[in-house]
Design a binder for these strands. Structure first.
Lengths: 252, 252
DNA sequence: CTTGATAATACTGTATCCATAATTATGAAT
DNA sequence: ATTCATAATTATGGATACAGTATTATCAAG
């Protein structure tokens, strides 16, 4: 029992899994322009995540601490702290005395994770349907419209981004901080696979059709229907991912 | 793309959230007897969790880094790394430049978390019912029997421990590593509340009755029934917790 | 030529040190 | 007497230095 500097003025709980990002030059050293209010290790963690998602650090790769520290223009200390965070999130694996490796996601992992995501996102949709206000729905409609145009133009990358926004907004609308947290943790892991499913044949159109059902349920504020639609949407996503895995070049 | 020391020999993924513990003297310095294969920061993290669950570090408390480091007989570096991990788990809150505080769980948080736990543990029971083998069931029966005797003797602490084992084993039997991970993350947060619900009136007996239903479903390998029973069990737990919160002395 | 042991190298893990920012205490002015 | 401003103290955040262990390369023996 101690509270020397000051008992926290009733701040309920911390947001683990921040998303700080700054516009540092990718290869340059950090100039003294760091007035940042956000902890360095969190910025580094986010930057590492981006590198991992972009497969600059590919699954199975060894993470060279001093090389990265030199590259980022920082010392090893905040980098190591960031790696601890990513390890807790499951993005990297820390082997004692052997270093840090980017996590590899197996087919089994996907089979395990997708049903969970379906549950969590289904629940999000359920809660969102009950709580969302007209202005929330409007924001969803806006993203939905963007998705539509991206799908029509076959803009896979933009579609992917907007799709993330769509799902994330629904999770936020659920108003359940913990639900959001869990879903995002799993999504981070899924992003390791690069989700090539979206590039498959008519997956974009199929996804849009599924989104339509979700939107319809939300508009009617039918929680059970929204939950079912979202769950089906996720499970369909797993199926689409099932076929092409392994043999799919980046196609940049 | 780099893999200098050695490409990880196909180890799929790391277990975030280790549970390493050694028998160090609580206040003594760590002698050179550390041949430990487990990283120090993980040991420290586990020790901090125990302190938090035991309310030696109570919700809202400030965590004094150097005092703790001195107490543990280590430097601040591994302690800080451990705190980053706990922050990611949601057990503590790191405020930039202001220090580290033990997370406080609100009533709202409980309302958010319990339905999630009900979902996750329900799913665990569902998967466990389909996958469990006779020997697995035997282990469950053993724990179940212990619970029965503890309940009869009103041994709350022992009951609590065995109850954790019961739930955890079912989650393990689900064979879904990610499901286990999510459920345990949430359970850690719930443990912050000390779960006084078990001490209330006939809650132990009620919990046993609910466990009976779960066991019956598992014996018959009825996945849907097991899921429903587990879900109801968790939600009943929330109700039991609803009344007495706030006014419940430790009663050591 | 292959296989084993030994030495060298390099990286991880921990400790110590320094700078910066926040909090607190003290003093002065209203 | 109360309040605001300023200075001192203290803790956090980051960098650097050091120790220990794993890996790799070299060399010798079979």
């Amino acid at each position: 029992m101690n509270a020397r500097p000051q008992p926290p003025n009733s701040t309920p709980v911390g947001d683990a899994g921040n998303s700080a990002r700054n516009g540092d030059a990718p290869g340059g050293v950090a100039p003294p322009a760091r007035i940042a209010q956000t902890a360095l290790y969190l910025e580094v963690a986010e930057r590492l995540r981006q590198s991992i998602f972009a497969h600059e650090l590919a699954p199975g790769d060894w993470v060279d601490e001093q090389a990265l520290a030199a590259d980022y223009g920082i010392s090893r200390t905040p980098l190591r702290e960031a790696l601890k965070v990513l390890a807790t999130e499951g993005l990297v694996t820390l082997k004692p005395r052997r270093g840090c490796y980017v996590t590899e996601v197996s087919e089994q992992d996907l089979d395990d994770i997708f049903p969970l995501m379906a549950m969590l996102e289904g629940r999000s949709a359920w809660e969102a349907a009950r709580k969302c206000q007209p202005e929330d729905l409007a924001r969803l409609e806006e993203i939905h419209a963007r998705l539509e145009s991206y799908a029509a133009a076959n803009q896979v990358d933009l579609f992917f981004e907007a799709n993330q926004d769509f799902h994330r907004l629904i999770q936020e609308l659920s108003g359940n901080r913990w639900l959001l947290q869990l879903a995002q943790d799993l999504r981070k892991v899924l992003k390791l696979t690069r989700m090539y499913s979206l590039t498959v044949d008519g997956r974009l159109q199929q996804a849009m059709a599924e989104h339509q059902v979700i939107m319809a349920a939300l508009r009617q504020r039918d929680a059970d229907a929204a939950e079912a639609a979202m769950r089906d949407h996720l499970l369909a996503g797993r199926k689409a991912l099932a076929r092409p895995l392994g043999a799919r070049p980046p196609a940049a």
